[in-house]
Structures are given as C-alpha cells and as structure tokens.
Design a protein around this nucleic acid. Sequence first.
DNA 1: TAGATTGTTAATCGATTAACAATC
DNA 2: TAGATTGTTAATCGATTAACAATC
Lengths: 214, 214
Amino acid sequence: MSTPTQPAAKTGSLPTIRRLPAYLQVLLEYQSTGMENISTTHIANALELDQVQVRKDLSVTGVTGRPRIGYSVQQLVESIQRYLGWNMTSDAVLVGVGHLGTALLGYRAFEKHGLRIVAAFDGDETIVGRSIHGIPVLPMSSFDATVRRLEVKIGILTVPSPAAHEVAQLLVSAGIKGIWNFTSVALQLPKGIAVQNEDLSTGLAVLCRKLMNL
Amino acid sequence: MSTPTQPAAKTGSLPTIRRLPAYLQVLLEYQSTGMENISTTHIANALELDQVQVRKDLSVTGVTGRPRIGYSVQQLVESIQRYLGWNMTSDAVLVGVGHLGTALLGYRAFEKHGLRIVAAFDGDETIVGRSIHGIPVLPMSSFDATVRRLEVKIGILTVPSPAAHEVAQLLVSAGIKGIWNFTSVALQLPKGIAVQNEDLSTGLAVLCRKLMNL
DNA sequence: TAGATTGTTAATCGATTAACAATC
DNA sequence: TAGATTGTTAATCGATTAACAATC
C-alpha cells in the first residue's frame, strides 16, 4: 500500500479539464523565473479568469496549497500532468499524411504532453516509405499488424472527410481506444471508444459570432 | 424597411454556437439525398444529441419548422450560415508559414465558411515571395500596409509561441479585429478585439481524460 | 382523424460566483 | 499580530432536460 502524499483526484467537469492545459502553460513559463510558489491570483490574472475558479479547478487534481504562501509550482505542474496522464508517454499513430497530418507530425509540443507518434499511415504510395520528422510513413496494408504489435491505443485521424468513417472502423478493429478526430465527420463508433473532435469550423464559428457582437 | 421572412436571430450560448457547424455539416450531406425537409430527430441521431436540444439550438438562428413536416433543409442551411456570417466572404491574413500555417493555407473547407485567406506573412526571407496554394507569402515589413489597404479584419496566428505576443500586437495595430490564435500563448489584448484560442493541448487533455475514464 | 413533429414553459441539473471560515 | 491566501459551503446563474400544448 502506498502512502498518499495528496488527496485523490476528483472527476472534474469538461470546462475544468479544458482549462487545465492553460494553467500548465502559465506554470511552465513561471517556473523559468525561479520562483517556487505561485498564487491563484497570479494564474487568474495571466489568463483573465477568476481566482476562485482557478482554485476550484486545481483542486480536482488533488493538489493543495498553503494559505499565505500559495501553491508549489513544482507540485502544481506534476499534479496537473498526472491528472491528464501527461507524466507518462503514450504512443499514437497518425493516419492521413496530408498538409494537416504533416503539420501534426512536426508538432514538437506533443512530447511535452506525453504523446509520441510512432508511425504514420497513408494510402498514397508515392509518400509511403518516406520519413517525416523522423516518423516513418507506412502503407495502410501494414496498419492493423503494426498497431497490434506496438499496442498503440491512440489514433490521430487526419484523412480527407470522405474516408473518415471507413478509416475510423479500421482503427477500432485494430484495437485503438481513443480517436483524435480532425475531420469534420461525426463518427459513429461503438461504446468504449473515446473520441475527441477537433473540427476547425467549431472555433471559426465562435470567432465569427464574437466578431459580430463587437 | 425590409419585410422580415423569419424572426430575428437571438444571441445564442457558446455551447449552442459550437454545435451549429456540426448541424450544418449534417445538413449539407443530407441535401445531396435530394430530400427537402428534415426533422430534428434525424439531426439528433446523426450527432448523438437530444432532439429537443437541436430544436432549441436551431431556434437561435430565427428559423422555424412546420409540425409534422420538419424544417426545410435549404432554409436551415441558409439560416445557420447567415447566423454565423458564413453567407458572405470575409478576408483574412495568416502570419507564420510553418507546418501548421501551410496546412491552413491549403484548407479548402474555409471557402465554404466564408473565409478567404488573401495573404500570408513570414519573417523567414527564404520563403517570402513564394506562393502557397495560390496565396502569396509576403515579408513582415509589408504587413501593416497590406492589411490596411485590403481592410482585413481577421488574422490567423500560426507563429512559434515565443513570437506570439509581439505579432499579436502588430495585428491589432494594423486594424485586425479578430484573432484566430493557434499558439499556446494566452494573449493579452485590448477590449474590442475578439480572440479565439485553438490550442491543440486543450483537445488532447479532454481525449486523455476520456481514455482514463473508459 | 390520428400521429408525428414543432415550440414553449417549467423543472432539473451543473457550473460559476459569492461569502466566509481556516490558517500560515 | 495582521493580512494574504487557501478551501469550503451557500447562492446564483445558465444550460439542459422534461412536460405539454399547438399544429400540419
């Protein structure tokens, strides 16, 4: 039995989870100043949020602060990373090496979030065999065997929309448990598969409405 | 005075706005079947949402349906597009022609959302002067004059994080009113500037938590 | 007509905000 | 000590869900 150094993490609402990476970003930058402690007031100001909300959000990770002192930056960073599973490395595969896929393959920041793309796949034979940012592009025919062999659980879907559904089925049947979906297609998948839709039109819609309300 | 053919659009909550593009996607696909009307039950099933919520969401655009018949697909499409400002074309500029910037320059779907990227800018002189997917890459030195001359109001920020703040100031001083921010930096901007953060780590965090709760 | 579907009003649920006690 | 900050409990606010009337 382990000795718990801090309370267990709670569930946390979706809005809370979405704010945590921003806190982490602020903390990592703050860390470079050499300060050991930080107050929620400071974090709240940097992100234009309410300090009570920041405190409540942070509490879901199980971390605690000290009155008058604030929170240990180091502890906060580790606590958020653990809560998001970013303290350990997860392997992922990417399918669809178009413009967006290529961009994601070169996105170094994923490493900081514990995500390692171990292989990319594409149906276009002219790019199969290449290596993009050190990641090999393999043929779709080797998808199932490779994913099973490496026991990859995360799939990044960057194929053209018409292929989205078919490829998603392929991911699931190869044992992928979480799909990061960059297509604009609403995937119909069995229970037990986590999907995160990253359709750009969502963000554009919000921006357009914000602009209309200025 | 114009004769209103439908009630005025309401404000609409953020979650509602975020769901509208998905409705539009379903509608555009449904349109190709040739059916003229669609029920909220149908839309709800396609997106795994509640039909009452779909109806409430659609009502913010001012559109109305007919009992027993449903909604006119054509009317719905136009109503959502009008609500999001996607019925007219808005010009935008993109700053930072790295991997992600290049991917966005090639993203044809923006046209369907009324967004036209008229110019890209980069500090790297080796790529300045090129044309990517028909969009010219111009030097940063011409940024201010070009944006003012073309009266561009939307800026897409795809520069490396360390440059984010400085470039954002440049956008604002050139008259940009809305910033689509793909960096992980929380921009501090004056009132009256709309910002939409599109940091990928937010989505990754949600996916990771979903995976942990399977 | 009967039944399917819309649209509105009320109830519930959940997240944010406010108030305040605890404490270093 | 006094004051700044945490952390919890209560109040408010807003979004979702339920109930039901309206109607083609």
